[in-house]
Amino acid sequence: MSGGASCTAAPPAALSPTLERVSFDKIPGWRQDSVLSAFHAFARSAERVEIKPYRSGALGIALSAFAPAHRAARAMPDADERAARAFFENHFIPCRIRAEDGGPGFVTGYYEPEVEASRIRTERFCVPLYKRPDDLVDVDEGNRPPGLDPYFAFARKTDAGLVAYHDRGAIDRGALAGQGLELVWLDNRWMPISSTSRARRGCGLKTARPCV
């Protein structure tokens, strides 16, 4: 939905002053573009939120505001294009994001890069892509130990309890080596710090989610 951001149908007073309400007809391509894939993505999020709630964002929109939309999405397993468009129009308000200083804005986007990889380590492919270690556990307010950074969503499980996980430097120095965690080997260190990438080589094309 280019040209605007969707905020939930909350009272205008609850929204950030950086959000300006507009109509769906003001979104370029709204009537022509397919929105079914966007609905499927939202529906997956609606399932996930029951397991682990998302943190609220910084635009004045609480996670609870999405509850009606989440319930509706979970009840629409066979939605088609028409139903998906109606879903967004019924549960969301299009908003234009305005820079607080009135100047131009800056928007970041999510994408999934593809990189070359090898199943075996070679001189070129020498950077490991690790799967999630068994001692990496989710952290929330129910199990967060005293002193652990409140922004940490994960921790390392030890016999003495939960502690901060190995940082990037420690992992580069071999903190995870020798545990059989290597999924594939890469030829650069850029991919492991992105959230999701695709690795392709003789093993074919696969999606890999780095643990760090």
Rank of each mutant, 00 (worst) to 15 (best):
M1H: 13
G3P: 01
A5D: 11
S6W: 11
A9S: 11
A10I: 14
P12C: 05
T18F: 05
E20C: 02
S23H: 11
P28G: 11
R31C: 08
D33V: 09
A38Q: 10
H40I: 09
H40R: 15
R44A: 14
V49E: 14
V49W: 07
G60R: 05
G60S: 06
F66V: 03
F66T: 10
F66R: 08
R71A: 15
M76D: 10
D78K: 12
D80N: 15
A84H: 08
A84N: 05
F88I: 03
F88N: 07
F92S: 05
I93G: 04
I93C: 12
R96K: 14
R96D: 00
E100V: 13
G102Q: 12
Y111L: 11
E112D: 10
P113K: 02
A117D: 06
R119Q: 13
T122Y: 06
T122L: 08
T122H: 07
R124C: 01
C126R: 15
V127T: 11
L129P: 00
K131Y: 05
V137R: 09
N143V: 07
P146W: 06
G147C: 03
Y151V: 09
Y151E: 13
F152D: 14
T158L: 05
D159G: 12
A160D: 11
L162D: 09
L162Y: 06
D167P: 02
R168C: 04
A170W: 03
A177E: 15
G178E: 07
G178L: 07
G180V: 02
L183I: 10
L186N: 00
L186V: 03
D187M: 07
D187E: 14
N188R: 14
M191G: 13
P192K: 03
I193G: 07
S194I: 08
S197A: 15
G202V: 06
G202F: 06
C203W: 00
